[in-house]
Design a protein around this nucleic acid. Structure first.
Lengths: 337, 337
DNA sequence: CTGTTAGCGCGTTCAC
DNA sequence: GTGAACGCGCTAACAG
């Protein structure tokens, strides 16, 4: 039933070795022999057992994806990220092994865990900026690509979006609509992107000669509830605000609920900008203007990087950031005069 | 750096064989010896290489997840399903290898592909009811669990929700609110769940003495646009309808958009019920009443089944269906008198 | 050009 | 109780 290289050898009348070489494209094999062997292999539908192969070659065709933190899994974008990873990986004949938070808790050192499972490199998402593993990975010879957390080692790199630029673009949009008092509901600062988004917020303000006011910023935790809380607090304390930027669509949805409950009409009374462009951003009412991140593309980029890192010992990682796109819907409008 | 059984043997002063036996709990080893070996293993942080192990034992600790059809990946519920699979798998020390549509396209017979990758059993989602592979899997000795597609073989089973019951519950709710003319926007009938939902729709109608009217049913394709189209067509052709059931939240969101655009107020003029309870169901306005499926739980159940099927040769699969929950929000209300 | 030998890391006979 | 020898499926050195 399961056909091994031995079956092919027997049927073709050659040694196992010759079959191996013929199939792997070595040039020290008679073309006639190769043809015969290939024919038999095809007939028997032979495919080499990757497990056995990687055991001896020490090269490996599996990339490990570590999804840290339950919450990140629940949020929609992981699905797109994985989708991109798989598509890119499979074109390079790589497989994708997924690990959840629990796998790491087991206490097994990260790199050893990978080795055991025949994983040649890791893509990690959901890492907090404070995690000590980052420093460890930075010096490690083990190929690693982080999602949305900067790292810079011989075998470690990261992929992300230009969050600052995204924020500035959104601020341009709001400024053009006449907004001058703009609040910001951020996520927690353990997420690197949130620091970037805050920096972008400041940069955007400065660009238009607006002064940064600390009281205009609220730190949430990416939950819908924290979006509600943030909107409530910011608006109560700063009734002069005419627009709110929010570091995630989910928090923006919470803010939207709260503001509506408070009696504000959007975008007439207040403008709102989200971040991510998740599926539901188009479904709220008013539909959310948001800073779109194409997670599928990010997945492809991550896969591309990790595969290069694994395959090419001399490859020097270069950091490429993807750009976001401002998707203008109905939650933003001209400032009330 | 990478510690093998050989390192442990050397350091402990025993042969590789003895170490293997000690670590694997054989009872023909001196307890004192075992203790010493275990101590060394722990000290060296030794973990057996699963790749090498499965090569010799022929037993395997990897389950393959096949996500067929791009669309299913894009939809939110895959993330929760995967989350459940991982959590359950990792408690049994199983790994999860994910394959996308492309992997199967390669022409490699399914079972052989699994064998190559050291996959002991497969969980498959996104399968159409017309796929010939189902019959093949049914007779196959290869452990398989299908998501939402019935199958019944010695080593094949499936997990799903009681879609019929879910529909009936929702119909009960609508009936209690006074609705008698109830339309249904279904997905395509190549999805088994859609057939079930249709059956449930009919059953629910019959339960309340309402007659099934074919003109009240529209077949969409799970896209938001088809939800819009379905709502438009059903309402135009059957203005007497007072409620619409929809076979997915995304289509329901489309229907909601369309109905709102047509000038209907929900739930005053019309009631709407979705299916799935995806994140955004709570975010539309009005928030969607919907039939909730806990995909995380489904993932755990699937993992539990496939692991039993892999580990226990004598295990006879039994089909357990999970129940849905009707989540009542604001899109349903008493019929307009 | 081709076959023999060896070994990847591990578990399993079978002697001792 | 313990260890030597063998094999899983495959590739890599070395002969010939």
């Amino acid at each position: 039933m399961i056909v091994t290289i031995r079956d092919v050898a027997k049927k073709a009348g050659y040694s196992i070795t010759t079959v191996s070489r013929a199939l792997n494209g070595f040039d020290d094999v008679n073309e006639e022999t190769r043809a015969k062997i290939m024919a038999v292999a095809k007939e028997l539908n032979y495919q080499p057992n990757r497990v056995a192969r990687s055991l001896v070659t020490k090269t490996v065709n599996t990339i490990g994806l570590f999804v840290l933190g339950r919450s990140s899994f629940q949020q929609g974008f992981i699905a797109d990220l994985v989708s991109g990873l798989i598509d890119e990986a499979s074109t390079h004949d790589f497989d994708l092994l997924i690990f959840g938070t629990q796998s790491l808790k087991a206490g097994l050192p990260f790199q050893q865990l990978c080795h055991q499972r025949g994983v040649g490199g890791a893509v990690i998402t959901g890492l907090k900026i404070t995690d000590p593993i980052i420093a460890e990975l930075e010096d490690s010879p083990f190929p690693t690509v982080l999602i949305d957390v900067p790292i810079n080692g011989p075998k470690a790199t990261y992929v992300t979006f230009d969050n600052q630029k995204g924020m500035v673009q959104a601020l341009d949009h709001l400024y053009d609509l006449g907004h001058r008092k703009i609040g910001f509901i951020n996520g927690h600062l353990e997420a690197w992107v949130c620091r970037e988004r805050l920096a972008g917020y400041k940069k955007g303000l400065a660009k238009h000669g607006l002064t940064y006011n600390k009281a205009y910023v609220y730190n949430g935790n990416f939950s819908k509830e924290s979006g509600r809380a943030g909107a409530k607090e910011l608006i109560k304390k700063n009734p002069e605000l005419t627009a709110l930027m929010v570091a995630s669509d989910l928090m923006a949805a919470g803010a939207l609920e709260e503001l509506t409950a408070m009696g504000y009409a959007l975008p007439e009374d207040l403008s709102l900008v989200g971040f991510d462009d998740q599926t539901f951003a188009a479904l709220t009412s008013p539909a959310l203007t948001t800073i779109k991140q194409d997670e599928y593309l990010l997945g492809r980029l991550a896969a591309e990087n990790i595969i290069k890192l694994i395959n090419d010992p001399g490859y020097l990682p270069e950091i490429k950031t993807l750009t976001t796109n401002l998707v203008i819907r109905q939650s933003t409008g001209p400032v009330k005069s």
